[in-house]
């Protein structure tokens, strides 16, 4: 029996459940030197904004135990560049592409979503990177507020009718289920769990933060237990909501933890920095696990976590 790795999340069809996480894979061009992009379940491209953003000052990253901190500031060339240059190239590679949208106001999210809808492309889905400050609300981060999360999701869903929309939630909140509920009520088709965990590191020799921006987002295996917990918390309450689990996945075992906690697919992030071929390796390991255990369909594993006995 050959295990079936194909999954469908709210209409997003993936040949295998392992995607590249946004911001860790560009738009696939650089990684294509090392692997065939068709081998990935999908590519969630670097977040795009309405206009090009040049990002934050350097240093933008530092290594931390089992992970790294980053503060890039979504340096990107804007939605028009994505639609004109990156998406046609990705489509020519036969890659399954998920766009990631970011913005500093609800209106910016809506305008990017509108451009994507109007372009009528082969794009498979959209992920909303709502871990951005809202300049119209004292720089509060959208994903930290249930109402701001709902407003972005509702406004985007009103214009982006042809693609499934995944809200990428922040772990830096008191209650992830509270924000998840708000995103789902506003019409999110699925959830991506989790974005990076806020962190900070200090250079004691200079008494300065190691990142020019002060705080940063922690990623890598250090945060995997937080991601597993977040997926578990949300899946337990809404077992039918498709979740893309992400946070510190390096191996198939890591991915299976998230899947068993309730993720229908996983995204590999920081591990791509070390090995551009990490995604297909993780997918291959999931296949081996299924073959060894006689599991025919990866969907059988989603949320299979045993809590009693």
């Amino acid at each position: 029996m050959t295990p079936d790795l194909a999954v469908t999340l709210a209409g997003l069809r993936l040949a295998n459940p392992v995607l590249a996480a946004s911001g860790t894979f560009g738009a696939g061009r650089e990684a294509a030197a090392f692997l065939d992009l068709k081998a990935l379940g999908g590519v969630i491209v670097k977040s795009m904004t309405l206009t090009p953003w040049s990002g934050k000052p350097t240093p933008r990253m530092c290594e931390t135990p089992s992970g790294m901190l980053n503060a890039i500031g979504i340096q990107n060339k804007g939605v028009e560049h994505f639609l004109a240059e990156d998406l046609p190239w990705l489509s020519a590679q036969d890659a399954t592409v998920v766009a990631s949208i970011a913005g500093n106001s609800v209106d910016e999210f809506v305008k990017v979503a509108h451009r994507i809808e109007a372009a009528n492309t082969s794009l498979a889905a959209v992920e909303l990177n709502i871990s951005c400050p809202n300049l119209e609300d004292r720089n509060h981060i959208f994903a930290h507020s249930a109402s701001a999360t709902a407003e972005v999701v509702r406004s985007v869903k009103a214009v982006l009718r042809s693609k499934p929309v995944f809200a990428k939630l922040s772990p830096n909140v008191t209650s992830i289920p509270l924000i998840a509920e708000s995103a789902l009520e506003a019409g999110a088709d699925g959830l991506s769990l989790i974005n990076t965990v806020f962190g900070m590191a200090v250079d004691v020799s200079t008494r300065r933060p190691k990142l020019a921006g002060g705080m940063g987002g922690l990623s890598g295996p250090a945060i995997r237990p937080i991601a597993v917990r977040a997926v578990h918390e949300v899946h337990r309450l809404w077992p039918h909501v498709p979740i893309i689990g992400q946070g510190g996945v390096q191996t198939a075992t890591d991915a299976l933890e998230l899947i068993m906690a309730g993720a229908s697919a996983v995204a590999v992030g920081t591990a791509n920095f070390v090995d551009p071929g990490a995604c297909p390796k993780v997918a291959g390991g999931i296949r081996d696990y299924m073959a060894a255990g006689g599991v025919g369909d990866v969907a059988e594993l989603v949320g299979c976590l045993k809590l009693e006995g």
Binding site: W53, P57, N129, P133, F198, D203, G214
Partner: peptide
């Protein structure tokens, strides 16, 4: 930390982003 750079001597710091650069999140 410096072994993450070529040669590992020093890194840039304190450069401000250009005007209109957008305000990204702490992560990403």
């Amino acid at each position: 930390q410096s072994e993450l750079s070529l040669g590992g001597g020093a890194v840039r710091a304190g450069l401000q982003p250009e005007a209109g650069a957008g305000h990204g999140p702490p992560g990403n």
